[in-house]
């Protein structure tokens, strides 16, 4: 019997009453209220920033202003340079994010599969996790060379240990009775992993994705600070070296927008998963 052929019982919910409509309206109003305040805060920050800069209360040479940031962005769009920098940083972040998430999960699977290996490697993982990865910067450049490979390596190093630890915890937190249930139904180790351990860890995996979004941007920008000739991190360093605060601020704002979009994409995946 194919599952698609099976039908669900129609919802037994009562038709909307006035009280229910009132409740829904209250929920809607609450949502609008929160969203309005979120937008208001942003408008206030931008407005205040522009006003203080325009009236020279704060020096635009050091803090720039929204209009200058906007003009800088437009000029970079017009000469086409911005797309190259955004593209490179985005590529480095996405590649680093993907390698770290998949690699960290695969290592976690390996360590779940082999308890002895986990016990052997545990102290090394703990040390790697507590190590400030920026300290490895010079070694990374020596080993993998400068440029994109070094940046991606930095990004991977920052995310991979955390991914491994989080996913391993998620795998190990599976209810022992559920594993016994699978064993009582004669499931082999692969089936236990594939049909129980892995799907059971999906929520944790989404949390890891959310954390990795932030961490991969940190890793990429850190890597670009160390060694790069293009990218938003490079623009920030270059802008600060030539005292072009408008360039620094424009790149930073773009970073905020890109990180938020990536986080939003993960939230959409989460929403789709929880349906």
């Amino acid at each position: 019997m194919k599952n698609k052929q099976l039908k669900t019982k129609p919802s037994s919910a009562a038709p909307y009453s006035k009280a229910h409509e009132k409740y829904l309206k209250r929920l809607r109003n609450d949502k609008i209220f929160v969203l309005s305040f979120q937008i208001l805060i942003l408008v206030l920050i931008i407005g205040l920033w522009e006003l203080l800069a325009a009236t020279n209360v704060i020096d635009p040479f050091f803090v720039s202003s929204p209009s200058r940031v906007f003009n800088m962005f437009i000029s970079m769009v017009e000469n086409g340079t911005i797309w190259r920098h955004i593209g490179i940083t985005l590529l480095e972040t996405l590649v680093g994010f993907a390698i770290a998430t998949l690699g960290g999960t695969l290592i976690a699977i390996l360590l779940w599969w082999n308890k002895r290996l986990r016990r052997i490697l545990e102290p090394y993982i703990v040390v790697l996790n507590s190590l400030p990865k920026i300290a490895l910067g010079p070694i990374i450049i020596l080993w993998v060379g400068s440029g994109m490979s070094a940046i991606i390596t930095m990004c991977v190093l920052i995310c991979i240990v955390l991914t491994t630890i989080s996913m391993l915890n998620a795998f190990n937190s599976c209810d022992a009775d559920k594993i016994q249930l699978m064993k009582s139904m004669h499931a082999n180790k692969f089936q236990i992993f594939w049909k129980l351990i892995l799907p059971n860890a999906t929520s944790e995996f989404i949390s890891v994705l959310k954390i990795n979004v932030g961490m991969s941007w940190v890793g990429t920008i850190m890597g670009e600070y160390l060694s790069s000739s293009a990218g938003l991190g490079y623009l920030i360093v270059y802008g600060s070296q030539i005292f072009n605060i408008n360039l620094v601020m424009t790149s930073t704002v773009l970073l905020c927008i890109l990180a938020a979009l990536m986080y939003l994409a993960i939230c959409l995946i989460e929403k789709w998963h929880s349906r």
């Binding site: 599952n3 009775d177 559920k178 139904m185 004669h186 499931a187």
Partner: peptide
Amino acid sequence: RDHLFEWRNIWQNVTLGIELT
């Protein structure tokens, strides 16, 4: 406890043993 797998629907839960063996 019933230990139904929350990510599987009732049919998928009920036929888990068939799927495994």
